[in-house]
Computed example of a mutant assay.
Amino acid sequence: MKVLLVYAHPEPRSLNGSLKDFSVERLESAGHVVQVSDLYAMKWKASLDANDSIERSDNARFDPSADSKHAFESGLQSEDIAREQQKLLWADAVILQFPLWWFSMPAILKGWVERVFAYGFAYGVGEHSDTRWGDRYGDGTLAGKRAMLLVTAGGWESHYGSRGINGPIDDILFPIHHGILYYPGFDVLPPFVIYRTSRMDETRYADTCEALANRLDSLWTTTPIRFRPQNAGAYEIPALTLRADIAPEQSGFAAHIG
């Protein structure tokens, strides 16, 4: 299988750097082919702007969606964007690895998403009508591929529990799982989260690597999160709200998991 690991940490000698190297070695030793997009090492440009198109008038008003669509459809995207899109199309599975900074991914990784997930590539795809609202949330360009988050967090696991002060980790990661990965079609696996990273000693590191190895070994057999597909009947279209008889006792993020 082919795996793309998109990695966002500025220090190669960090825990994240070590886990990235471990993941690549583990996957390759199992016979998989791995590409790594090391965003800091690549000096990835995080901001989506008019320079993402290689041909446009300097005097034209910049419209992020319209310009993204035109550049994608016309083959006018900057080379770095097109290269990352080809990696996504090549991969059978994608791992996004990052430290949890201020309850989300680092800005450089968010910028990778904003620029690479272009209009016509990851969104704005498919028929929009009274019966189908585009190819997304279970459909889309990246359907059939798997995705997993590998996340490190400084807080204790209890801080991210169901009654923890930071909020449940599944809620914190929902916008990434559902809105970034499931939206364009990925089958999204449960995340691999490492807590209390400042308290990592040799014994705990060995245990962490063993657990991570098991997750990597089961990348193709782990059951994905059961998000509800948009176009399979659970949602009223075009309102895109759950039917009244679907999980009537639930609201918020949990209602969208079947």
Rank of each mutant, 00 (worst) to 15 (best):
A244K: 13
D171S: 12
V94I: 06
A213K: 09
F227T: 12
L100T: 01
E249T: 13
D187W: 01
S74I: 10
A147T: 07
L5D: 09
V125R: 03
I194Y: 09
W112F: 06
Y123K: 02
A82C: 07
E114A: 12
A46L: 12
V24Y: 08
D92N: 10
F253I: 12
L76F: 11
P224F: 02
S198P: 08
S78L: 11
I165M: 14
S65Y: 15
S53W: 08
R204W: 06
T152V: 02
I108W: 12
A8S: 07
N214L: 15
A143M: 11
L216I: 00
V193C: 03
I246Q: 09
D217E: 11
L39I: 02
L109T: 09
H159D: 15
S29Y: 05
G120M: 09
V24Q: 13
R61N: 12
I165L: 15
Y160K: 03
G167L: 05
D245R: 09
P191A: 02
I257Y: 01
L15Y: 08
I81C: 07
M1F: 10
E11N: 12
G140M: 09
D135K: 08
G120R: 05
A46E: 13
I165Y: 15
Q85C: 00
K145G: 08
S29D: 12
V3F: 05
A255D: 04
S68P: 00
P184S: 10
G185C: 00
G179L: 08
G138L: 05
Q230P: 09
P175M: 07
